[in-house]
């Protein structure tokens, strides 16, 4: 595969503003784009892993990088007061439309805001969810320090990250730079955007440096780059089998860390 050729065909969006532009461009097609197939499968596996944890959240909870609201809708429908923030105004407008449609407008506050500069007072929130967003942060440590600042003691924090070892392989195959990930969509040009990757262990270390106590580290999506070739019915079965493998975290494309804010 000629990486240089592939790179020439991509639009490159730099930095935080680039991330915002990408999601603005994707907003109207994000939920149903067939070209976001891989994202969708990552989301479904992550949701399965987080299903029980979502039940533990108390009001008010912050959904950082809420996008079109896959978790905000779930939480609001359980009666949890949810604050949904995103850098993409167009994504937030899609979320507002969905909330109206589901009659859930009352339980959700929608704010245009940045995860690295949270607009909340110290110790004001009981829970925080940052899924498939953390890797877009330019200063992940600053984000975690903000998460710690706004959470109450014992507040639950859930962060998911793309396994950086898997991303390395993808980047090598496509010949793209070390901090970018490709995005496709029917109405956008193929785009490279800032998205690093971490390991769950790295996230745990950052969390513990900023006053969190780790509770659980989970992995999912064990099929990595083979995803598009695995038929849907095989999915859950494979996940259940592969999670039992020794060193299963190494083979998981997505790592999810759950932590609690410790008393000072």
């Amino acid at each position: 595969m000629n990486g240089e050729l592939l790179r020439r065909r991509f639009r490159v969006l730099e930095g935080k503003d680039g991330v915002r532009r990408l999601y603005d461009d994707l907003a109207e097609i994000y939920d149903h784009s067939r070209l976001l197939y891989l994202t969708r499968r990552l989301e479904r596996c992550e949701e399965e892993v987080l299903r029980e944890w979502l039940k533990k959240f108390d009001s008010p909870i912050l959904d950082v990088g809420c996008g079109s609201g896959r978790y905000s809708l779930k939480l609001a429908s359980r009666g949890v007061e949810t604050i949904s923030i995103d850098l993409s105004l167009k994504m937030l407008k899609v979320l507002l439309r969905k909330l109206e449609g589901h009659g859930l407008r009352e339980n959700v506050h929608v704010i245009l805001a940045d995860g690295e500069n949270l607009p909340f007072r110290d110790g004001s929130l009981r829970g925080l969810l940052c899924t498939l967003t953390f890797d877009h942060f330019q200063e992940p440590k600053k984000a975690i320090s903000e998460f710690s600042r706004v959470l109450k003691v014992e507040g639950l924090c859930v962060i998911s990250t793309l396994n950086k070892e898997h991303l390395k392989l993808l980047r090598r195959l496509l010949g793209i730079s070390a901090d970018k990930v490709p995005f496709l969509g029917e109405t956008i040009p193929p785009t490279l955007v800032y998205e690093t990757g971490h390991t769950g262990l790295e996230i745990q270390q950052m969390l513990s440096a900023y006053g969190f106590k780790s509770i659980k580290l989970m992995g999912c999506c064990y099929w990595g780059l083979f995803t598009p070739f695995i038929p849907k019915p095989m999915f859950k079965l494979l996940e259940k089998l592969l999670v039992k493998l020794k060193n299963s975290m190494k083979h998981a494309a997505l790592h999810v860390a759950v932590a609690k804010k410790s008393p000072k």
Partner: peptide, 19 residues
């Protein structure tokens, strides 16, 4: 935006509360 969000909102830059 609901009025009750004011109980949580602070300045994203200097963190002052309330606004």
């Amino acid at each position: 935006m609901k009025y009750r969000l004011m109980d949580l909102l602070a300045c994203p830059m200097c963190k002052h509360f309330p606004l």
